[in-house]
Nucleic acid binder design. Sequence first.
RNA 1: UGCCCGGUCGUCUAAGGGUAGGACAGCGGUUUUUGGUACCGUACGUGGGGGUUCGAAUCCUCCCCGGGCAACCA
Length: 569
Amino acid sequence: MAETTNSPNNSGERTSRNFLEEIMDNDLQSGRHTSVLTRFPPEPNGYLHIGHAKSITVNFGLALKYGGATNLRFDDTNPVTEETEYVESIRNDVRWLGYTWKDEFYASDYFEQLFGFALKLIRDGLAYVDDSTSEEIAAMKGTPTRPGTDSPYRSRSPQENEDLFRSMRAGEFPDGSRTLRARIDMSSPNMLMRDPIIYRIKHAHHHRTGDQWCIYPTYDFAHGQSDAIENITHSICTLEFMSHRELYNWFIEKLGLFPSRQYEFARLNLSYTIMSKRKLLQLVNEKYVDGWDDPRMPTISGLRRRGYTPKSIREFCSRIGVAKRDNLIDVSLLEFCAREDLNKISQRRMVVFDPVKVVITNWPEGTVEELESENNPEDSNGGNRIVPMSREIFIERDDFMEDAPKKYFRLSPGKSVRLKSAYIITCEDFQKDEHGTITEIHCTYHPDSRSGSDTSGIKAKGTLHWVSASHAVNVEVRDYDRLFRVENPAEEEGDFLDYVNPDSLRVIPVALAEPALLEDARNATDSDDRLHYQFLRKGYYYADLSSTAEKLIFNQTVGLRDTWAKINK
RNA sequence: UGCCCGGUCGUCUAAGGGUAGGACAGCGGUUUUUGGUACCGUACGUGGGGGUUCGAAUCCUCCCCGGGCAACCA
């Protein structure tokens, strides 16, 4: 659906659109195209990351907006790096993000057609087989400031080239011994037009075509033609492919194909992380993280495991916009989008991370009171849950201070606080061990201050989360910090691994949770039933993949905004 | 150094010759049984020099800065 703020309105007045929307508007208005067909073209050689999410929302989002569709096409022209495992994860991630593709294709579907295209170029005198080594080819290529020189094989006859090319396909030559090159212009200012290699010999097993082929087309000879075969109207890619556009158009023109056009936008860079698939792979292989889906990874699967919602990721991608200038998006925007969504949907629960015992001295021994607490104050239909209260409870260690400054709204001797959804308590006394560590706090509660029917008239500045000692459930909590210590690891000197944050994971092996959390876990029949939580005054949490009712494990999605921590600094 | 892109608050992104606006981050406040949320307020920007014009972020020009291009990767 078209947003009024983002497309020409009824009066024809110009409103804000990004440059791709302008192009599509123009193409539709001029009649160049009557509909929009985009494609998302991942190479199955790694897991998708948040940068791909941007590309996905650009491609699928634009098509949706203009009533078109999007194909999912795997760019699988390099058998040595590509695997079925990656294909599966990519399909899963795109679906999870909420998008449905029209057709699923593989560049390898077109290998036979591509071979035919190559033959046509050969017969038209526009391609030749080169016997030069890769070093020789590189040397003859020239440099950006110096033109290249013609290969001695450049003037072979079409017949000889065709025979040789067919022999290449037949497996008569070893890897690297020959290539097929487009015959363009060795002195072009665009290096890519200096007779680019379009086929290479690789006796390698392909994840889909098996051992059917021993020659494989390069990206340049596969991508544009695949677009054209599918009648892709707008082939949207990242900036580094800009100089490939001239070649892209050359093949389409010489081959007389559907006039797909390539447009480039700036890829996403996110502060305190990296987007390079190669480097992400390294983090996985060298065990800096737990796997592609480690919650610290900027991968879609990592974000999912961490508790990000598809909606929050889509919102993020929409907020960052699409343009052509290099960018480094502040990760706080991603976190904002997570909180924005999670605040509305998450179930509130109380979990004490670093417990200290509080004895309520005037609470009758052995009595339990079942209090009710709202599941979500942002959702009036969210219902309530039972929270049991008894004589001994736990509160957070840093919610008590022996000598508190005046701005401290929590518990200290003689002061009163509200226990969330329960009673107001007043601190009467406390005990310390020989190290000065608080071991026990003694309070009295005010029976007429019960939540919802408070007639006590006592004003408590602060409200604390708490759990009943005898009802507490042990859970493991994993808090995360940024994966890298520096804002832009890719730009730093030296090895990026030197900038990995050694404290990116903080495990709290035993935190004490209210019993409702266990109840929830028992009710979840599979992982899709898992709830997003807000642990009160802590942050947003989501059960880890490995979490079970026997062993509850929660990943921190993102912390709550903490203005107190800021003031405290 | 040749060719190709790009340069607007700290970070992103609008403004297509006519009031430089929005978001995140920051700062200050109000409300609050989460020091959360919500709401209000506030500060901050057109890389530089020339030119065209009544008027320039926008058009021209020179300069400066950043990025890309010399894989049989994509």
